[in-house]
Design a protein around this nucleic acid. Sequence first.
DNA 1: ATTACCCTCCCCTAAAATAGCGAGGGGGTG
DNA 2: CACCCCCTCGCTATTTTAGGGGAGGGTAAT
Lengths: 237, 237
Amino acid sequence: MIARREVILEALGQAHELEALQDSIVRLRDHFRVDHLVYHWVSSNGEQYGCGTYPDAWVQRYLDKDYLRVDPVIIGCFQRFHPVDWKRLDWSSKAARGFQADAIAHGIGNQGFSVPIRGPIGQFALFTASHHCSDEDWARFTASNRRDLILIAHEFNQKALELEPGRSQEQSRALSPREIDAMTLVAMGYSRAQIADTLSISEHTLRVYIESARSKLGALNTTHAVAKALSRGLIVV
Amino acid sequence: MIARREVILEALGQAHELEALQDSIVRLRDHFRVDHLVYHWVSSNGEQYGCGTYPDAWVQRYLDKDYLRVDPVIIGCFQRFHPVDWKRLDWSSKAARGFQADAIAHGIGNQGFSVPIRGPIGQFALFTASHHCSDEDWARFTASNRRDLILIAHEFNQKALELEPGRSQEQSRALSPREIDAMTLVAMGYSRAQIADTLSISEHTLRVYIESARSKLGALNTTHAVAKALSRGLIVV
DNA sequence: ATTACCCTCCCCTAAAATAGCGAGGGGGTG
DNA sequence: CACCCCCTCGCTATTTTAGGGGAGGGTAAT
């Protein structure tokens, strides 16, 4: 059994196309004997990418209804560190109940277990196993497969990023050391006079750094440059 | 062998104090037969928490020298998704070379493998295995233990968060909806006139929002407030 | 009903940001 | 060697923002 999972992961490792990912996820679903296995990427600007065994009708409905903003799985996992059973999420809101009913009507199953995955600049993805069974059976399943699901989530995310590198790149010209110093102190709230003093340079020179950083980052003003530098992980405050 | 790892993880699961974490990490190090195993938490405000087998002298030096800003492991993993071997990091800068020499002088070992872990609002932690051996031996080690290290990193992070919940909470007074609107647009680089226009309020009113947000965040100025709001995940750009 | 917070508007002055012009030395790379 | 980028500094000018007041009306909870 374990050997078979390894074989599938091996195939995943050798996948060179997105179709192969889809193939792997179907086989993993069959291996785990669950109704659905889904990988769901959510970009910070709201873009989505999905891959899994959900019926097309449900995927389309999810997109049409903009369920991303309602889905308690997304909302819950977005503010959580660790894998979570769907039962522990907050399904109390009216929108959530409607969503839940719609999901079950599309055959999604009453049980679920989702692993959140995060990237450097707010990237967010979910790997979810979903099934239709009793609470007891699901508890047994998650207890024995929790670690495997975490690992597969990682492998899957890595592969998905390799195959669609556009999402992970978005690289920007790096800032020079002095620019990083300057922007870091700016982000820390110090005035230009204080920063110039701290860096032992003239205030005018400081302005040159800030301006060149702003220009490199394609920012509209200093505050925007700080926001971009922070988002891109170029500075840490 | 595997059974023993399970036993240690089991003990980790039952740990109720930070000392038990320290104990677990030592035992895991012995199990993996590496020089060092380290869990390193970095808060968005620069606070650090460490736990592992590095010598005290090195930990102290790391803090004293503010190596956090130089350490290529931190910098590299901060902008990466996946576990990484230290050899694939950028050690070319002068500061990095000095850091590397200092680390080796403190017995840190020439090989390393670090697993980045991330939380909802920019929380960042590293789980690192470090050793002194040849490239070939290290490649063999990482190939066969990569998945275990990822899992342990997760378990460890979860446990560390449970035991010191203060770090995961760090709650700040939430911003009002209007303040979030204002700060989001400020972070996006628009001028106050544009923002006031967008929000259909007077520019003076807009200033009040920015000022109250700044006050709530305990920020020194608007840029600082944007940086804090971003770091705390109060706004998303 | 008192308190507290949110939203909206207006005034002020001083500081900062932006923009343009210029200059020179140092360090790598083609 | 030239070229480009990094670092450093100078000047002037205009526009924008910052941060401090005060003030009224709304809502929601205590």
